[in-house]
Design a protein around this nucleic acid. Structure first.
Length: 255
DNA sequence: AAGCTTCACAACCGCCTCGTA
DNA sequence: TTACGAGGCGGTTGTGAAGCT
């Protein structure tokens, strides 16, 4: 026996919303809010709709500051990167894109981005490089993974005496060939709190924010260019901790 | 112009989570 | 601790518009 439906579907209207229904719902929510119950709202507002349908209509279409269509390159970047990191958690992805809804992003992914990324490797690479040369690593706010940030070496730092920054001791990429002929690059970055300024280590500041913004990303780009790489990594795939030295793995775009 | 196919996106379905009694 | 209901979410479907033959 299945779960009881949230409303009597024989007594509620279904399908597309009319402008009149939109007005009723919009006016009611703006004046009274949801009163803590979407289920009870249609009755109070005078709508012959399921409460869930009202909630969805409001969240995805009627609430203020909703944006539809016209995704920017930056939004593409964020969606692609987060999808790579966390999969189909559309609500989390939407939380990083002001004005966008999970439904909108899901539709956009299913109709546009997914198709572009399923193109043959050469075409996909061309598309990615043309669109995402400035791809930046975004991560969900809930992530516990700190992002390293380059900083100037304070004068008083001597062999790890400074307790907050870390010393990057190694960045090593490795390329693996996939069965379908494409390849992927995995880069491991290692650091410790006991580095030395003199031994060509890089000093990074973990900072306190969990969500990286431009300053983090620019700094990380600097770090990479200093090492002779010309593309930014975009995915943190693993974090390990062994012998006081930590490693973070980044995987570059498939190409 | 008509019929068919593809695309875009709104809306629904049903499962899962969480708060509360 | 358990049961229940509402909200949240991701997957899927329905439908109108646009494009193609």
């Amino acid at each position: 026996m299945g779960r009881a439906p949230c409303c009597d579907k024989t007594k509620v209207k279904r399908g597309p919303w009319s402008p009149e229904e939109d007005n009723i719902l919009k006016n009611y929510v703006q004046q009274h809010g949801t009163s803590g119950s979407w289920i009870a709202l249609p009755l109070k507002a005078g709508l012959k709709r399921c409460g869930k349908s009202c909630r969805l209509r409001w969240l995805n279409y009627l609430r203020p500051n909703i944006k539809h269509g016209g995704f920017t390159e930056e939004e593409d970047n964020i969606i692609l990167t987060l999808y790579h990191n966390i999969g189909t958690r559309w609500s989390v992805i939407a939380s990083q894109l002001p004005g966008r809804t999970d439904n909108d992003i899901k539709n956009y992914w299913n109709t546009k981005l997914k198709k572009k990324l399923s193109q043959p490797p050469a075409a996909a690479a061309s598309y990615l490089h043309s669109r995402y040369d400035n791809m930046l690593p975004y991560f969900p706010k809930a992530s516990q993974i700190p992002l390293p940030r380059l900083m100037e070496v304070p004068e008083n730092v001597e062999n790890g005496s400074y307790d907050h920054p870390l010393f990057v001791s190694n960045i090593s990429p490795s390329i693996s060939n996939n069965a379908n002929g494409s390849s992927s690059t995995t880069t491991t970055m290692s650091w410790s709190t006991n580095g030395s300024v003199e031994d060509d280590a890089f000093l990074v500041d973990l900072g306190s924010e969990l969500f990286p913004y431009d300053d983090h990303l620019n700094a990380f780009g600097d770090l990479y260019s200093n090492l002779g790489y010309n593309s930014l990594p975009n995915v943190i795939s693993n974090v390990s901790d062994e012998h006081e030295q930590q490693s973070m793995m980044y995987r570059s775009l498939r190409y």
